[in-house]
Nucleic acid binder design. Structure first.
Ligand code: SF4
Ligand code: SF4
Lengths: 144, 144
DNA sequence: TTTAATTAGGACAAAATTATCTTAATTAAA
DNA sequence: TTTAATTAAGATAATTTTGTCCTAATTAAA
């Protein structure tokens, strides 16, 4: 469904959000330990998220990754997915015809677009805050 | 969403079904031309579909790939997907935790399972016959 | 039975994704 | 200003996926 990079990106963002609520910055090492991902690879993904203005980085002593508290509730899952996997999950799908769409559909188009639309809506209507709260409350987990 | 191999497998199965309705066997070359896929790679996928008893192969002169006409309407999209991509699309999903499920969900589980279930139901309720008919009637396309 | 046609299978190659390592650039604190 | 801490970036490697090629096995027809 999503690439590994995207999975790590989502989990990392959630962990950063949790810590940002407590005014703490976190390092790639802490993040990768918490979300059970390879550290250096995770660091690359964090760079991409910074470039896409989803998270912020502060270099130097006492630096790390953070998200402005006020923005956490406005960051949608779709932004993270889009930053890392691009828009193929919304556009190219099903049988991956080069030219697809209503006028030139592949055989599964009608059935597929229902699912795709639901996925899109879900990603666009889920924000980082609610995901972070589920972790804090112990309702959901980031690893194992 | 699906692997390339799976996309090719679905399209190939549809093309074989169309021809089987007319009692024609088709070769990997014809198939790959019709679905715009690499021939040798497609041949590998056809082998896998044969091993999974989704399509049949006949060697020698006038041989090729076919599907028993009577079975076409009973072959579900889910069988093809499962034969090539396995069950990860139903089981592992979302954030890909090693141990997932209701008792140990990842943060997106509740939202994700709705989409996943819908995808599963769609795949299990779509059969090769209806897809083949859409191609024959010119409503849908296999390439470009 | 021989032959030609055809799928099956294995070895190999290319490309994409995932992962690691080293060094550079930056920055806050001392 | 110097230093230590930290992210950024680039080079490289491992793995997986995708794709190619050659030969073997099978089989129907001649
Ligand atoms: S025709 Fe529809 S289902 Fe098929 S690849 Fe295009 S957008 Fe996806
Ligand atoms: S917890 Fe649910 S959504 Fe998350 S990986 Fe497991 S099955 Fe998928």
């Amino acid at each position: 469904m999503f690439s590994k990079a995207c999975e790590y990106g989502i989990k990392a963002s959630i962990f950063i959000a949790i810590n940002s609520f407590e005014n703490k910055r976190v390092s790639p090492k802490e993040i990768s330990e918490e979300i059970d991902s390879p550290t250096a690879f995770t660091a690359k993904i964090l760079q991409a998220l910074v470039r896409h203005n989803i998270i912020d980085s502060v270099k130097g002593a006492y630096g790390g990754f953070e998200i402005d508290k006020k923005r956490i509730s406005s960051i949608k899952l779709s932004q993270i997915v889009n930053a890392i996997d691009g828009d193929k999950i919304y556009k190219g799908c099903g049988l991956g015809l080069h030219t697809c769409g209503e006028e030139h559909p592949c055989p599964v188009h009608d059935k597929f677009k229902v699912v795709r639309t639901e996925l899109k809506d879900m990603l666009e209507n889920t924000n980082l805050e609610e995901l972070a709260l589920d972790i804090k409350s112990g309702v959901a987990f980031l690893k194992i």
